[in-house]
């Protein structure tokens, strides 16, 4: 189980695979305002990244994986309106 809901927070844990995109989208759609915690996340499939971009939840946590932390996270967190920031 890599997508779990814990109160107002959705935790993405371990490697999130393509099939995780649907439960994530379903949760984000059903309950607007949820926060997504990437602290224990080790990898995001493009379909999951896409769901995070589409539903634009608040993203918290700092994953330890360098690709996630340095390349992907800046696109999801903070001023992401255009999703284009130099790294």
């Amino acid at each position: 189980m890599t997508v779990t809901r814990d109160g107002a927070t959705i935790r993405l844990q371990g490697r999130c695979r393509v099939e995780d995109a649907e439960p994530l989208a379903s949760l984000l759609h059903a309950t607007p305002g949820l926060t997504v915690d990437l602290g224990d996340c080790e990898g995001l499939h493009a379909a999951v990244v896409q769901a995070l971009l589409a539903f634009a939840p608040k993203v918290v946590g700092t994953p330890s994986d360098p690709v996630l932390r340095d390349l992907i996270l800046p696109l999801l967190a903070g001023e992401r309106q255009r999703g284009q920031r130099p790294i």
């Binding site: 393509v18 099939e19 649907e22 439960p23 379903s26 759609h29 059903a30």
Partner: peptide, 13 residues
């Protein structure tokens, strides 16, 4: 799966 309007089916990889 489910959307606000109710249950759905969708293809998945």
């Amino acid at each position: 799966s489910r959307r606000a309007a109710g249950p759905i089916v969708l293809p998945a990889p």
